Computed example of a mutant assay.
Amino acid sequence: MRIANCFGWQYGLLRSKNSKDIIYLPESEIQQLSPQESEEEILTEIDEHLNQVAMLQAQLGILHSPQVKNNLAWQNLLERSRNPVILSL
């Protein structure tokens, strides 16, 4: 987030990508990353997401394996998720 005021630009930054806390810094305190640093950060984040996708795919593979599909508790859980219970007050 970039905000203009009479003293110049001010930037609103999140402390981390999972944070909701915004800190505001004047333009003078912001240092732009070099193209190499930007590329490195982007590639690192892509790798993290690809690893997460691979883990989720492995979990899906386990859930769809014959051993799990033939498990009665798993079948009951699936059936309940297909037919949600609606509670009225």
Rank of each mutant, 00 (worst) to 15 (best):
L33C: 05
I86L: 14
R82G: 06
I86G: 09
Q36M: 09
L50T: 10
Y24Q: 08
L25R: 00
L14P: 00
E41W: 03
I23Q: 06
H49D: 12
K20S: 05
L56S: 02
S81Q: 07
E41C: 05
S88R: 15
Q59P: 10
D21A: 14
E41F: 05
I62S: 08
D47M: 11
A73R: 14
K69N: 10
Q57W: 05
K17M: 13
W9F: 15
Y11C: 00
L72S: 12
L56Q: 01
H49L: 15
S88M: 14
R2Q: 08
K17S: 08
Y11P: 02
N5D: 04
L43S: 12
F7E: 07
K17A: 08
K17C: 10
L50K: 07
Q75P: 05
N5L: 05
P35W: 04
N76L: 15
R15W: 07
K20M: 07
L72W: 14
E48A: 12
A58V: 04
S88W: 11
G8D: 00
L72Q: 12
Q67P: 09
L33Y: 01
R15L: 12
Q32N: 10
V68W: 04
K20R: 11
Q32K: 12
Q59V: 06
P66M: 03
K69F: 10
Q10K: 11
G8P: 01
N71D: 06
L14R: 05
Q32F: 13
L43W: 11
S19N: 03
H64G: 09
S16Q: 06
I42E: 02
L13M: 03
N76A: 13
S34N: 01
A4C: 08
S34H: 01
A4T: 04
Q52T: 14
A73V: 13
I30W: 01
K20H: 09
E27Q: 03
A4P: 04
Q75Y: 01
N83Q: 15
Q52C: 13
S19K: 02
D47S: 10
E27N: 00
S65K: 03
S34G: 00
Q52D: 14
I23S: 02
Q67F: 09
I46H: 11
L56H: 04
Q57H: 08
Q59S: 12
Q36S: 09
L77D: 02
V85A: 07
G8Q: 00
Y11A: 01
Q36K: 14
L63S: 03
E27H: 00
L78G: 11
S38P: 06
S81A: 08
L60A: 06
A54W: 03
H64P: 09
C6T: 13
Q57D: 08
Q67N: 14
E40R: 06
A54C: 03
L33Q: 04
I86K: 13
L50Q: 08
L78Y: 12
N83Y: 15
Q67S: 11
L33I: 06
L56N: 05
S81I: 11
P66K: 04
K17L: 10
H64E: 09
L78A: 10
L25G: 02
A58T: 02
W9A: 03
E39C: 13
H64Q: 15
H64L: 14
D21R: 12
W9C: 04
Y24E: 03
L72P: 07
H64N: 13
L89W: 15
N83S: 14
R2W: 07
L56K: 05
E29Q: 04
L14T: 02
S16G: 06
A54P: 00
M55E: 15
L25D: 01
Q52S: 14
A73W: 15
